[in-house]
Computed example of a mutant assay.
Amino acid sequence: MPALTRATTGGLPLRKMAHNRIKPFQVNEKNEKGTELMDKMDPKLYGLPARTVLLKGDHDNFVLCIDRKSRVIMKDAAVILGKADKIMKAVPGATISLETTAPVCSKSTKFLSNNGIEIISKK
């Protein structure tokens, strides 16, 4: 395999090429139950940061997606709960889930489940 240089990457810096290898969550993919398709939503409509990946099902089911390798800790869980609260204010009665590829610490799992957020582990 030839070495990556600016000439072989079309003049782009190598760090940008490495960043493109990260695969985001796919839009319109089936959830764990295999029953409904999710549509990607604009997080700014719900007062969330633009980097938030938010999927929406048919019946006010929202999924916050986190695609990373590092563990989800309590500080992350508090941020997730804040995002969930913003969605609940915009859409009363919505159900919110967290879909992640990262491991979730047990304390965060208890905290999120006590606050009504289901965790979907995707590996």
Rank of each mutant, 00 (worst) to 15 (best):
P43D: 14
K86C: 06
P13S: 15
A94E: 01
T8R: 14
L64T: 09
G10C: 08
P49H: 02
A77E: 00
V104A: 03
F62R: 03
S70W: 06
E32K: 14
A50G: 03
D39M: 04
M17P: 02
V27M: 07
I117P: 00
I96T: 00
I87D: 00
Y46M: 02
R68V: 06
D58P: 05
E99N: 05
K40G: 15
A18F: 13
T9Q: 07
P92C: 12
M74T: 10
M41K: 06
P103G: 09
R51W: 12
T101F: 01
N114Q: 13
I96V: 06
K16V: 09
G82F: 00
R71D: 04
M17V: 13
D60R: 11
M88N: 14
T8D: 12
F62H: 04
K123D: 14
S121T: 14
K110G: 05
F111A: 03
D67T: 10
N115Q: 11
V27H: 06
R51C: 09
L14Y: 11
E99T: 02
K110R: 10
E32D: 13
I87Y: 00
A50W: 01
E32P: 14
G57K: 03
L64R: 10
M17Q: 07
I119T: 07
K40Q: 15
K83P: 00
L64K: 11
L4G: 07
S106R: 12
P24A: 04
E29H: 11
I96M: 01
L98Y: 07
A84N: 01
F25V: 08
G47V: 02
T95N: 06
V91C: 02
G93E: 02
P92I: 08
C65H: 05
V104L: 04
K33C: 07
T52K: 06
R15G: 10
D67A: 14
M74D: 13
M41D: 04
K86H: 11
P2I: 11
K110V: 11
V104M: 03
L64V: 13
A90Y: 00
E29V: 09
